[in-house]
Amino acid sequence: MSFLTRSRSGAGSSRRVLVPFTRGHLDPTVLAASIRIARAEDATLVPAYLILIPPEYPLEAPMKEECAQAIPLLEAVEHAASKAGVPVDARVESGRTPIHALERLWDVEHFDRIVVPAPVGRDSGFSLKDLTWILAHAPSETVILRPDPALESNAA
């Protein structure tokens, strides 16, 4: 007998689009584009917050402040996707670096497409080095989304 939350919204959506983000920020234009991609592909959107654990802490250390950023943000993303009619199934993963956390996520779940926000104007997401690594090593088709720089500077 299973007591997990049934996901009616997820029923029938076997394709999965991963949108990883980190450091307390997901650009709204990237989120909107990810939702559009998931809807167009009739896929489930999997927003994943990557919690970074500083080297001075053990890998299994509780990260209360990071979680206090991550969980509300994930819920906001879930809400936005649901409101747009896109099935959503959020995740939290942890690691020393965004890449480390991503690798751990890929090890346990399959994704058909990965949508990665490009770094624009602020130090809030993946670095260029991270993006290069993702392009070379991601196990699935990968899209790097760069928000409109004008929108970005207006928002900043």
Partner: peptide
């Protein structure tokens, strides 16, 4: 086992 390890990590960061 794999899924439990992943859940343990999430549980870890959440305390």
């Amino acid at each position: 086992t794999t899924q439990l390890a992943a859940l343990r990590r999430v549980a870890g960061v959440l305390g």
